[in-house]
């Protein structure tokens, strides 16, 4: 049976590892490389590393840094931030990324998703959406690290990204992010029920129950978390044990560390 993945997310800004609340008040929480090494040693299911300011600052991805992260990382690695062209994707894959995440550029150039999927395969194209809930209960998309409203409703955009060729959707609730109060389950369920590709839940995880809810209620294929692993004693391994006890299939729940 396919296992539910637990994915630590590393947000990276000016070479430092950071974590914010609702995409603001960024706190420096270390450096990226040692964090990648620790997660590699712990044999986590996957890692997502996002350069959160690259697009806003019109920077290309930092290929050298990515090569450094991936050098000793034998964990499937998704890299995002600043990707706008096919050439950026090619260089990232060559630097050791297994998958790439595209967010802001998909709004300006939706065909980029299609070109990438046609050439590199949709399995390596993760479409990332940052969403906020509006007063009418609908969720809308934001780009450039949650700063720019795109006027698009989330479910319609997720379906469009699937049609364009995305292989997975990484869906982040901007207002829940960093609060550790739980994922936006309504957002997750709406997206998961309307696409046929895997959905990775992101934004708000604070404890293991939140992860179980993202799977059982939110119908997500994978759960991503950052603050919960940076700021509390909770670990991906214990999360797996909890999920397994709750009947959710995971791998390596019984490994020793």
């Amino acid at each position: 049976m396919l296992k539910v993945r637990i994915i630590p997310t590393l947000l990276w800004k000016d070479l430092g590892l950071v974590k914010g609340i609702a995409f603001d008040s960024w706190r420096r929480v270390g450096t990226v490389l040692p964090a990648v090494k620790v997660y590699n040693m712990r044999e986590v299911d996957e890692l997502i590393v996002l350069d959160i300011t690259a697009s806003r600052e019109h920077r290309e991805p930092d290929y050298e840094a990515v090569a450094e992260f991936s050098g000793d990382c034998f964990v499937p690695l998704t890299i995002g931030g600043g990707i706008r062209e096919m050439d950026h994707i090619k260089k990232l894959l060559r630097s050791g990324a297994d998958k790439i995440a595209i967010n802001s550029a998909a709004y300006d150039d939706p065909e980029l998703i299609t070109r990438a999927a046609m050439h590199f395969g949709s399995q390596c194209v993760v479409a990332s959406i940052d969403a906020r809930k509006s007063d009418d209960g609908a969720h809308y998309c934001y780009s450039l690290c949650g700063s720019k409203p795109m006027g698009r409703e989330v479910v319609a955009w997720a379906m469009e990204l699937e049609r364009l060729g995305a292989g997975e959707i990484l869906i982040t609730s901007v207002e829940n992010d960093g609060t550790m109060n739980g994922y936006d389950l309504d957002l997750l369920r709406k997206v998961s029920e309307n696409v046929g590709i895997p959905v990775i839940a992101s934004g708000g995880a604070g404890n293991y129950q939140h992860m179980a809810d993202a799977v059982s209620i939110g119908k997500s294929s994978a759960v991503a978390a950052a603050s919960m692993f940076h700021f509390t004693e909770q670990t991906p391994l214990s999360a797996k044990q909890f999920l397994q006890e709750n009947g959710i299939p995971v791998r390596n729940a019984n490994m020793r560390q």
Partner: peptide, 29 residues
Amino acid sequence: MTRIPHVGWNEIYRTRENPLFEGIPDGTD
């Protein structure tokens, strides 16, 4: 509920003895 692409960790079960899976338990992800 089946999602495509098939992404993530899943088991393998060998159909017969073979040198590639020497020392690898059935059901390994």
